[in-house]
Design a binder for these strands. Structure first.
Length: 817
RNA sequence: GCCUGCGUGGUGGAAUGGUAGACACGACGGAUUCAAAAUCCGUUAUCUUCGGAUGUGGCGGUUCAAGUCCGCCCGCAGGUACCA
């Protein structure tokens, strides 16, 4: 029987569909596994990153089904978002039809890859039913005080009269019309994620056993909790007069109060209120104003790279020394961290140092290393001993920090403060293709929530997407409505929501079954059974934003009484990207590989096998056409040899190991080694590449013998191990020979690993010189004796210092002479 | 700029502090074939005076032992709050 991917794959895909093989059971007494891969944006076609993502989750889902778990492995589409509007601008397509056409196409691609998704829970976040429940949650959050309005700076194109995403700003200009963008202060909605900053930070501990350390560290740094001193810097009299006494002082925050005697200038963010006041009141030269405007309009990343600044011609008084300190504006000072102002200590901070060097500002060192000299050509940012700091001289940094904070508190001129880098989450978008924020502006009543029974507030379909203005704002009728409170004429909010809102709760929606799909987002009972997600799999690019927002929503939902746990994702697997020719696959680079073409030529099993074999999941994966060919050849061999060497049976053959010859024993050992490795891979390591290599080794060993019992036993196990990877061919073999009885848990037997003798490496001074063969039960003394004989050549004239035996590995003899 | 990773043969990678290069691709040699494809078997880190020497981005350190742990440097990638 020749291997034909097409006939086997069509057969089993049809079977799975007809038998609804992958729908989870509603029997909540069974043990469950919730396997989730991050759902895709429906960009049109699957790319290899998707194939990798869903092949991984599918492998887990299929493995746990074999282990008799009740498995939920759902799929949906994160279908709101900017690309649908970009396509509309480019091709005149409607975002909705563009999106749903793409979804239809991608669903077929999923099916052709043999992914074992539960189809009955499929959803698109742009479905009105999804929007309805989401808008309900938004209203709940507003009522709980977790959603509020404030001004925020946005990229504005003065030509197209539209807000631009960061991605749509190319070299400081609009992507469509090339007009230089400006920052515009506009009313925005924000989630109060900062209220949960401490809990989001503390609960990272609960994730330690299941999440990669890398992601935990990234989130910890992103939240960026730091303790320090906040105090006011007061202007001198001349400066106060300049400001017409509108400002007396400004607030600064430092994590290094021990360096306070080293302050030699202070810097404000370009957006700081004092700076704005000076611009408005023409207190700055036009040249200075132009420099400040340029700082404001450049991106935050640019502002951190090339430091620039300008003096304001103001001075403040040092709170402890009474010295005059100049006030500057600096581009690297950010308005949304701390108070938008910093005290600068160039001797002990890199950024302050670079800035001081560039503008020739004084550098005053006040900390020296506990041992060694202070280098005047660099900032010394470590802790050390204070000098030039009056009464605090001689203290170490840690003591000085506590004492200086205490001094400020006692004098009532400053206080101990905690700051976070984490900012509140801006959720409003001035775009069409998103979930409308279900609020109404009434002249009488102010901001009013839409009534829940009127949800969803749905998008109008008759819109023109041009890239100019805000489509909902421009729509002739959509925004006009009656106030739900007083009944008078009112207008709807025309902002829609950030698409991260949809992806912050979709994993909860998947817990709902068809029985309550229409009437509620999910039931408490369903959530309790299915959550948390046992394996969550997705790209490392989501390490911070998506995963932090989903954690935040979970905690908010808990506090709203919808669920009873703190964290949504038990175990997280972050996959690396798929590269070709050393670069990320992308249309613009023209280095994409189309999954459809691959499936057409080799079949889904080959695509899946290659992608799992080529690299461990967390690592970047380099595409290689000839290695794909190799994967295909392996599957063909795997299939064809089954049909030449096996007999049919519905129980695993029982074999008397002692009667076997050397090759047969070795083959069995390799098979059970592969099984032991597979168990480890599925449960702990997730390195499918090594699991597959183990099966290949077993195949090579099997090939050196011809015992049909050994072959049949091997396939009983190997088809089970490989089913999650190459399900179609595995089901075919299982069906043909084992009545599919082997797709079940497999037990490792120990007798195949028993050996009479073992080989050990012999090292002299850590350098491998030779090897020895010893009895498996030889004592260390015997082993050392044999090792010394074998290594006599290198031991001549040397005196032995130490002898180390590493069981079953090697002997190291340390000599000198 | 900042935060987080990664760097091993011609290539993808293995090695859970203990014999570096498993497994695979490619290449080379052979078998089969009228011939080719397919298939099967074998060789394959580098240098070598054939004794051995060198070797995991670079420099240094810890250890009996380092690809693995620590420090600094170089290169690449992801994130950087309106791409998802």
């Amino acid at each position: 029987m020749e291997y034909s991917s097409k006939s086997i794959e069509t057969k089993w895909q049809k079977y799975w569909q007809e038998h609804k093989s992958f729908e989870p059971s509603e029997d909540f007494s069974r043990e469950k596994k919730y396997i989730l891969s991050m759902f895709p944006f429906p960009s049109g076609r699957l790319h290899m990153g998707h194939v990798r993502n869903y092949t991984l989750s599918d492998a887990f889902a299929r493995y746990y089904r074999q282990q008799n778990f009740n498995v939920l492995h759902p799929i949906g589409f994160d279908s709101f978002g900017m690309p649908a509007e970009n396509a509309a601008i480019k091709n005149g397509s409607h975002p909705k039809s563009w999106t749903y056409d793409n979804i239809d196409y991608m669903k077929n691609e999923f099916a052709s890859l043999g992914f074992s998704f539960s189809k009955e829970r499929e959803l698109a976040t742009s479905d009105e039913l999804y929007t309805k429940f989401e808008q309900g949650f938004i209203i709940d959050m507003y009522e709980k005080g977790l959603l509020y309005r404030k001004k925020g700076m946005l990229n504005w194109c003065p030509h197209d009269l539209t807000v631009l995403a960061n991605e749509q700003v190319v070299d400081g200009c609009c992507w469509r019309c090339d007009t230089p963008i400006v920052k515009k202060d506009m009313n925005q909605y924000y989630f109060k994620i900062t209220e949960y900053a401490d809990e989001l930070l503390a609960d990272l501990d609960k994730l330690e056993s299941g999440w990669p350390k890398q992601v935990l560290t990234m989130q910890e740094n992103w939240i960026g909790k730091s303790n320090g001193l906040a105090f006011d810097l007061y202007f001198d009299d001349t400066s106060k007069t300049k400001l017409s006494s509108n400002f007396e002082s400004f607030d600064v925050f430092t994590t290094r109060p021990d360096t306070i005697y080293g302050v030699s200038y202070t810097a404000l963010a370009p957006e700081h209120a004092i700076v704005s006041y000076m611009i408005e009141n023409k207190l700055l030269s036009s040249d200075v104003v132009a420099q400040i405007e340029a700082m404001k309009n450049s991106s935050s990343i640019e502002r951190q790279k090339e430091k620039s600044g300008v003096a304001l011609g103001l001075d403040v008084i040092h709170p402890l020394t009474g010295e005059k300190i100049p006030v500057w504006v600096a581009n690297f000072v950010l308005m949304d961290y701390g108070s938008g102002a910093v005290m600068a200590v160039p001797a002990h901070d890199e950024r302050d140092f670079d800035f001081a060097k560039k503008y020739d500002l004084p550098i005053k060192a006040v900390i020296k290393p506990f041992d060694g000299e202070l280098n005047p050509e660099a900032a010394y940012t470590e802790v050390g001993e204070l000098f030039g700091s009056s009464e605090f001289d001689g203290l170490n940094s840690k003591e000085a920090q506590a004492k200086i904070i205490a001094h400020f508190q006692a004098q009532n001129i400053g206080k101990k403060t905690t700051n976070y880098k984490l900012k509140d989450w801006g959720v409003s978008r001035q775009r069409y293709w998103g979930a409308p924020i279900p609020f109404i502006h009434c002249e009488e009543c102010g901001l009013v929530m839409e009534k829940k029974e009127n949800l969803p507030v749905a998008l109008p379909s008759d819109v023109e997407i041009t890239g100019e203005g805000n489509p909902l704002e421009k729509h002739p009728t959509w925004k006009h409505c009656k106030c739900p409170k007083c009944g008078k004429d009112a207008v709807r909010e025309t902002d829609t929501m950030d698409t991260f809102v949809e992806s912050s709760w979709y994993f909860l929606r998947f817990c709902a079954s068809k029985t309550n799909w229409e009437k509620e987002a999910f039931s408490a009972e369903q959530i309790k059974y299915w959550m948390g997600v046992d394996h969550y799999i997705g790209g490392i690019e989501h390490a911070i934003l998506h995963l932090l927002y989903a954690r935040f929503f979970t905690k908010v939902f808990r506090d709203l009484g919808y669920l009873e746990f703190d964290e949504p994702f038990e175990r997280l697997l972050t996959q690396g990207m798929v590269l070709k020719d050393g670069a990320k696959m992308s249309k613009s680079k023209g280095n994409t590989v189309d999954p459809d073409a691959l499936i057409e030529k080799y079949g889904a099993d080959t695509a899946r096998l290659f992608i799992l074999f080529a690299a461990p999941p967390t690592q970047e994966l380099e595409w290689n056409d000839s290695a794909v060919e190799g994967a295909y050849k392996f599957i063909k061999r795997f299939h064809d040899r089954a049909f030449t060497h096996l007999y049919a049976t519905d129980v695993i053959p029982s074999i008397d190991h002692t009667t076997l010859n050397k090759e047969e024993k070795f083959a069995r050992k390799k098979v059970y080694e592969a099984l032991a490795r597979a168990n480890e891979v599925y449960n702990e390591r997730y390195t499918f590449n090594t699991m597959i290599a183990g099966v290949m080794e077993a195949m090579n060993a099997l090939n050196a013998q011809s015992n049909k019992d050994v072959w049949t036993e091997a396939y009983w196990i190997m088809a089970s191990i490989m089913e999650p990877v190459i399900p179609h061919v595995a089901w075919e073999i299982s069906e043909q020979f084992f009545g599919r009885k082997n797709l079940a848990p497999q037990a490792v037997i120990d007798e195949v690993f028993e050996e009479d003798s073992i080989t050990l490496g012999v090292s002299i001074n850590g350098k491998r010189r030779t090897e020895i063969e010893v009895a498996a039960d030889a004592s260390n003394e015997e082993i050392i004796l044999i090792a010394k004989e074998a290594g006599a050549k290198w031991l001549e004239g040397m005196s032995i210092v130490k002898e180390i035996v590493v069981p079953k590995k090697l002997v190291n003899i340390v000599v000198k002479g």
